[in-house]
Design a binder for these strands. Structure first.
Length: 1198
RNA sequence: GCCCGGGUGGCGAAAUUGGUAUACGCGCAAGACUUAAAAUUUUGUAGCCGUAAGGCUGUGUGGGUUCGAUUCCCACCCCGGGCACCA
């Protein structure tokens, strides 16, 4: 097939043609062999560290959108180098994590192999585009030499208590089969695959990023000495981080539980509120369904079943279902439980509702329906009392005509506000106060002893005559209006109530003249009301009427709040907090960073779990109580006594390997030996507070009963397939229930687990549920095991038990630093297990290690780090990539840090850019980096989308490959086109057709060179336009007074200024348009000196490195243009010696004239008035005013 | 709902201490060169009225401030992004 090429220009002389492929290949090789772009740490020069967000080498290679940011940094980097800086411009690859792993699974290869292939391909693609990366500093997050230090940083975090194991429920993606951080969840779905996430309780490593929440937030706005912000970042990214960190201040207040069936309880419910000023309006409390107290108070609740049902339902809902704000509120009261409002000692009920989030604040809220919309909705639905404690306070801004006047007295008055509706005509009866400009409903003062309603009715009659009305409802509650009443000449403080009336009939009385002096009654259409009303009081009522809600969420004046009545609510928040014994606290939405993934392709977390160390320190032993065999035949089988296929001997062995002494006492079936007899034997066993009890089948039942009766405490109870207790033996079963509930086994043991299978039949599920609820046990469902879990399950199918036990019975021993890196083992099969265990757990050789502390047998941590680990510090490694002793030498860090310009996509706002800042601050705190922030200036690159306006993706078939574009147009054209498309940070659609413009531009430059060469030594420049052709000596300094050459000089020097400023401001599109203008001018002038042409080449060099280098060397320059000096402009050359003055008449441009920039104003005026086109417009008119702006314009008003 | 951006020709866009709106590029139209095409090149290109000179309108919509507004103020509409039952 014939290669596609751009037609381009042709001429008779082939050697004169612009042929990008020849040029570009040549210079790629030359730059490489001369090591032109090797970083030089010249301490005499200023440094400039410029960084790209390193790519994730996917299998698909680069599309034209990817290099956009790299082109930009390349331009800046080349510009800085030419300007005399030591430049660090490195590149590397981020390749751990799900995308690479999934790709490898799909390609049936190992991720390590896939990644190295992809990296090769990426590098090749990048090379073509001519970037000046110093590849000797390349980093790759999957290289053990690199991730050694990622692991090292983890150890430092662990050391400082910032990495910890947690067992709280976390987000779990059932499709990716791994736990996720909060940041990896988007709208309740896995960010990678879109599957709705589930909440799953599991052991996981968590980084305490919340310890840094305050600093991560505050440092976004920290100022330098010059009062400019330290972080020159796009406001949108800062704002996204602020939102994500989500700081709010408020009060933590305790509500005491008052009674249960007459008993006093010594318990509190702590709530968090940002509005302690509303506390007198609390009419109930709400707990999240997962709140600890829900379980604790359950035995005391009257409607236990109802509560249990509700909590169960809430648990089973997905995040998407639960957090749907549009859905109607649900909830259930905990009947019999009351708490006391510490503000007014009122007793109020406690509800459970899923609109309260368990993991924010305290998981409990005080509900103030009158002043919180969510509480309002809830109270309306469940008919709970609503008590107003804040009145909106309306007052006009000082200076306006109705504003309170300091020199007048204020009179307090009760005021009735009425809206009167005539449903026959859909109109409202209103008052038009013409003299005052007020538009209102009916207003009137309330007389002594009169109700608001009566006052309103009286006023309606007096002012409008209508007398037959029905009160429909009150609107908006009490409101306060403070204003100057012109008609009374005094300040009024009106305590008002709004009411809605309906007209019964048209019967009316005569309106006395004294009542109609200031206002006239008018009927206003319903749909005009909103615009018509212009008094705050009525606007407020109208809003309440339209929204059908009296809920007011603003600040205002307190009422029903005892001694705080009348105060401004915003001002007394802290005072009220103190009054109720609360604490002023700061809360963040940011959650700790879930840092473990149950996947293969990540950095192994460098810790070892040693059960031996733990057992030694805690004298742990395990007692396994097996159950009965599944049928009589097996029971009769003599082999069964050995349980050779059963999981028990395997478990025993594994536990002993782990250093846990293990006992398997005799466990006869319940129908063979009585519980009492067995208990006597069992009590003799060395059971301590550190013992682990494992029961299988009916063994579970014995253990539970024994725990119910004994006074002993144990550390852990594991029940495997405990449903045998649901046997036909009713007596036994009943006995069991009694123990579990009455003896509160759950208070003795924190860690109770049940293993069951997900497809067990109903009665099995039933007994598991009984355990779950009565013992507060965590249930682990083993998928696909079916009933085999119960009997002769093969040992290798059941590693979960050992893992669970060791996770609760092992000591975390950090891997000694000298043993780093912990390399990922090479394996054939690395698919995720889905069990909550990493596939690494199955690689015995790798997992089983010597404990570095006790030298006993121990196990490695098998979870790996998330994709975001390696990228959280890579920019530091570039500073010193080969260092074996430290991840970066302190001196080198001091020289290069911080990153001066960081360019990348905005999608990293709340993940990479927060994580990296967190790690950086931590590393600063432990004294190994020198700056508090890693990236001083951040620039977002706008996406290039497909020509069809959709995201470039294989799926849409709209991907444009840069290699093909380079082949047709050349790399320089691609670079210029991408920079010329539009503002750098803006998303723009690709358009291959538009590329010719960029190519033509380069060719013009090329031709300019050809013309110069042709005319070397001659006196005539090769201009294409005969008119402009001008005799000159090419490549010589302009002769004194040569107007053409001076003109080009002026243009060029202005271009130097503009291009320099634009590169600094990353405004590449306008820099290029400036260069285009210059080139156009040079072309049409025809007389260009060598010096001028060289300036142009230098200015263009960062944008089009190949063609400028070619032309530069063609001029005989020996050193590369890219290490030549950046031109400086001559200030005298950028001043215009003639300016155009604009003349306006009545604001419209009517003419212009050229003048000296120093022309004085009188002169300007005179000249302007003499212009014929201006005269035409002022003839016969009086000139009223003349405005003269120096060296700009004259504006005449006639 | 709250918070950030943004809205300008046929298209990508330029211009903001308030001073000629549409630079630069694409596209389009007509001309030159050519047997022809491509390439190159010249001219034109916001809309409306007009042969023209010229005039009117015009930077999302409606108001306002001003001699003058794409730029400042108020209200609204639309698009993009972030957060969201966060108490």
């Amino acid at each position: 097939m014939k290669k596609k090429t751009y037609g381009g220009q042709t001429s008779g002389d082939k050697s004169k043609e612009y042929s990008p492929s020849l040029i570009e290949n040549k210079w790629q090789r030359k730059w490489k062999s001369s090591k032109l772009f090797k970083t030089k740490e010249d301490t005499k020069k200023d440094k400039y560290y410029i960084l790209d967000m390193f790519p994730y080498p996917s299998g698909e290679g680069l599309h034209v959108g990817h290099p956009k940011g790299y082109i930009a940094t390349d331009i800046v980097s080349r510009y800085r180098r030419m300007s005399g800086y030591s430049v660090l411009h490195p590149m590397g690859f981020d390749a751990f994590g799900l995308p690479a792993e999934n790709y490898a699974i799909q390609m049936k290869t190992n991720p390590a192999i896939a990644v190295s292939q992809n990296v090769k391909r990426f590098k090749k693609q990048l090379e073509i585009l001519g970037f000046d990366y110093d590849w000797s500093r390349e980093v790759n997050t999957t290289d053990p030499k690199y991730y050694k230090w990622t692991q090292w940083i983890f150890l430092q975090l662990l050391n400082k208590g910032l990495a910890y194991e947690s067992y709280e429920p976390i987000n779990w993606c059932p499709s990716c089969k791994t736990g996720l951080a909060n940041e990896d969840v988007d709208d309740g779905r896995c960010e990678r695959c879109g599957t709705p996430v589930e909440k799953k309780p599991m052991r996981q490593w968590v980084l305490k990023i919340t310890d840094y929440a305050g600093r991560l937030l505050e440092d976004l706005d920290v100022k330098n000495n010059d009062d400019k912000p330290l972080l020159d970042w796009p406001e949108s990214i800062k704002e996204a981080q602020r939102n994500w960190i989500g700081r709010s201040e408020g009060a933590e207040i305790k509500f005491q539980i008052s009674n249960f069936k007459g008993q006093k309880l010594e318990k509190n419910i702590k709530v968090f509120t940002t509005r302690p000023d509303t506390i007198f309006g609390v009419t109930y409390l709400v707990l999240a369904p997962e709140h600890r107290l829900v379980k604790e108070l359950l035995p005391l609740v009257e409607n236990k079943k109802e509560v249990e049902e509700y909590v169960g339902r809430a648990k089973n809902e997905t995040e998407i279902e639960r957090t749907d704000a549009k859905k109607e509120k649900t909830g259930v009261e905990m009947k019999g439980i009351k708490v006391i409002n510490p503000a007014n000692r009122e007793e109020i009920p406690v509800w459970i509702a899923d609109y309260v989030l368990a993991d924010y604040g305290t998981g409990a809220v005080m509900a103030v329906p009158s002043h919180d919309e969510r509480d309002w909705d809830f109270a309306k639905k469940f008919d709970l009392p609503i008590k107003q404690v804040i009145a909106p306070y309306f007052t006009d801004n000082p200076g306006s005509k109705d504003a309170v006047r300091d020199n007048k007295k204020t009179v307090k008055r009760k005021t009735a506000y009425a809206l009167v509706f005539d449903k026959k005509n859909d109109k409202f009866l209103c008052l038009n106060w013409e003299k005052f400009g007020w538009h209102s409903g009916i207003i009137g003062g309330v007389d002594d002893g009169e109700s608001f309603k009566d006052a309103a009715l009286r006023e309606i009659k007096e002012e409008t005559g209508y007398k037959n009305l029905n009160l429909i409802k009150k609107l908006g509650g009490e409101q306060h209006n403070h204003f100057f009443a012109t008609h009374k000449d005094e300040n009024r403080y009106a305590i008002g109530h709004g009411m809605l009336f309906e007209l019964v009939n048209d019967e009316k009385e005569l309106v006395l003249e004294e009542h109609s002096l200031n206002h006239k009654p008018v009927w206003i259409d319903m749909d005009k009301m909103e615009d018509w009303l212009n008094l705050s009081a009525f606007k407020y009522m109208w809003k309440a009427y339209k929204s059908n809600s009296d809920c007011f969420t603003g600040y205002g004046r307190l009422l029903n709040s005892e001694k705080f009545d009348g105060t401004e609510s915003k001002d007394v928040m802290k005072e009220i907090t103190d009054f109720v014994g609360g604490q002023w606290v700061t809360k963040y939405k940011l959650r700790d960073w879930v840092f473990s993934r149950q996947r293969y392709w990540g950095e192994p977390i460098p810790v070892i779990h040693c059960t031996n160390c733990f057992a030694k320190e805690n004298k742990t032993n395990a007692i396994i109580l097996h159950g009965c065999p599944s049928n009589v035949e097996r029971a009769m089988d003599p082999k069964r006594q050995t349980y050779d296929k059963h999981w028990i001997p395997w478990t025993k062995k594994q536990l002993e390997i782990a250093g846990i002494e293990t006992l398997v006492p005799l466990m006869p079936e319940p129908w063979h030996m009585s519980y009492e007899k067995w208990k006597i034997e069992f009590d003799k066993l060395p059971i301590t507070e550190n013992s682990i009890l494992i029961g299988h089948s009916c063994g579970s039942a014995f253990l539970v009963r024994w725990l119910g009766e004994t006074k002993k405490k144990v550390r852990m109870l594991v029940l495997v397939a405990p449903w045998k207790i649901n046997s036909n033996n009713d007596e036994f079963r009943n006995k069991f229930y009694t123990y579990t509930i009455d003896n509160e086994i759950k208070d003795k043991i924190k860690n109770i687990f049940i293993f069951t299978s997900d497809d067990e039949e109903d009665n099995g599920k039933k007994s598991v549920n009984i355990f779950r609820e009565s013992l507060n046990a965590k249930v682990i469902e083993l998928k696909k095991h079916g009933h085999y879990i119960y009997g002769d399950m093969k040992t290798e199918e059941f590693p979960e038990l050992i893992n669970l036990i060791s996770s609760f019975s092992s000591k975390v021993v950090p891997v000694p630093e000298k043993d780093l890196p912990i390399k990922l083992p090479k394996v054939k099969s690395y698919e995720p297990t889905g069990t909550g265990e990493s596939p690494l757990a199955n690689i015995d050789k790798w997992v089983n290690v010597k404990c570095p502390k006790c030298k006993g047998k121990a196990k490695r941590e098998t979870n790996t780090m998330p994709q975001w680990a390696g990228s959280s510090w890579y920019y530091l490694r570039y500073e010193d990539p080969k260092n074996k002793k430290a991840f970066v030498d302190t001196k080198k860090d001091k020289y290069w840090s911080p990153v001066d310009l960081y360019v990348g996509g905005a999608e990293h706002a709340t993940r990479h850019l927060i994580y990296a800042r967190f790690w950086h601050k931590f590393l600063y705190d432990i004294g190994i980096v020198s700056t508090i922030e890693p990236f001083i200036k951040l620039q977002n690159v706008g996406l290039i989308i497909g020509e069809d306006g959709r995201k470039m993706s294989k799926r849409f078939g709209n991907v444009v490959n840069p290699d093909e574009i380079v082949e047709i147009y050349g790399a320089d054209t691609l670079r210029i086109y991408e920079m010329f498309m539009g503002p750098f940070d803006q998303q723009i659609a690709w358009n291959t057709n538009s590329m010719v413009g960029s190519r033509r531009f380069i060719e013009k430059v090329w031709r300019l060179n050809n013309n110069l060469k042709t005319n070397r030594g001659s006196t005539v420049a090769g201009a294409t336009n005969g008119d402009l052709a001008k005799p000159t000596k090419a490549f010589s300094r302009p002769e004194e007074g040569d107007p053409y050459l001076i003109l080009i000089d002026k243009t060029l020097h202005k271009a130097i200024k503009k291009v320099t400023e634009d590169i600094q401001g990353l405004k590449f599109n306008t820099a290029l348009s400036t260069l285009m203008i210059a080139v156009n001018e040079m072309e049409s002038s025809g007389s260009v000196t060598r010096e001028q042409f060289e300036i142009l080449l230098k200015l263009l060099a960062p944008f089009a490195p190949y063609v400028t280098e070619e032309l530069w060397s063609g001029l005989g320059n020996k050193k590369s243009i890219h290490i030549s000096e950046w031109p400086e402009y001559d200030p005298s050359l950028i001043v215009d010696n003639e300016v155009k003055i604009i003349v306006q008449v009545n604001g419209k441009v009517r003419g212009s004239f050229d003048a000296d920039p120093d022309i004085n104003e009188e002169e300007m005026k005179k000249k302007a008035l003499n212009l014929p086109e201006v005269k035409k417009w002022i003839d016969g008119n009086q000139i009223k005013k003349v405005i003269v702006v120096k060296s700009k314009l004259v504006s005449l008003v006639v």
